[in-house]
Design a binder for these strands. Sequence first.
DNA 1: TATAACGTTGACGTAAACGTAAACTTGCTG
DNA 2: CAGCAAGTTTACGTTTACGTCAACGTTATA
Lengths: 127, 127
Amino acid sequence: MTKNYSISDLAKEFDVTTRTIRFYEAEGLLSPERQGQTRIYSEKDRVYLKLILRGKRLGFSLAESKQIICMYDPDSGNRVQLQLMLNKIAEKRDILKQQLSDIRLMQEELDEAEERCQQALADFEKG
Amino acid sequence: MTKNYSISDLAKEFDVTTRTIRFYEAEGLLSPERQGQTRIYSEKDRVYLKLILRGKRLGFSLAESKQIICMYDPDSGNRVQLQLMLNKIAEKRDILKQQLSDIRLMQEELDEAEERCQQALADFEKG
DNA sequence: TATAACGTTGACGTAAACGTAAACTTGCTG
DNA sequence: CAGCAAGTTTACGTTTACGTCAACGTTATA
């Protein structure tokens, strides 16, 4: 008895177009139920979409997000590939670590840039 | 008397192709000196390239990286746009904050996924 | 001197991630 | 029941960020 969503429900909630959501389905990242032609999205579909978009913000491709989503549901894979999945997870972790480092560096540089701007503004006020 | 680099020096150091570096120049992100036809890259060019690639890892477009690089050199802009630049900086900060949050969430989920995998592997060993 | 090794400028190709338009069905609603 | 809103498929268009030749010039070294 879990909640259901229309395609435009999800489009509004996550601020994407319906075209985008259908595209993700065509790429095999979503597989909503159907009532006739019409797509019916479950809570699970909603979570998947959330994961896809989060991946996007972090610069992952759809193919990568697909892998991550597969990890999210370990029942679906066959057992032989579990070790391979663990390797993938480790890989993702390294990328995230790199991104964290990148973000810290960039934040420091933004601090400096802002300071220089403020200074330039102040100088302008005086001069 | 600052250090100089050839295009392939930089290509090797940052593991990109020379094509990529020339493309960044065509897009206005780099502007190396010339000795005849040949491009001569300064330390400043090297730093810019580093910034571009860091931006890429964080999912920024080249256009966005270009803006960030412009901030990096406040002398170049005219004074009237300084406040606008400060706004841009604030904007970038928000995105970085969002990315940090995304990364934390994703790391948690990777933790869970890994645990499920390990568990499944262990079950497999036993059963 | 020839033959790599490295550089250059076009110019066309391509993969990813959708946008956009056409042409259609279905379900309300005034 | 006319019409509009929301859904559908099909298919071509677009942008970004390069890859991949081709065709050529320059330097060094065997």
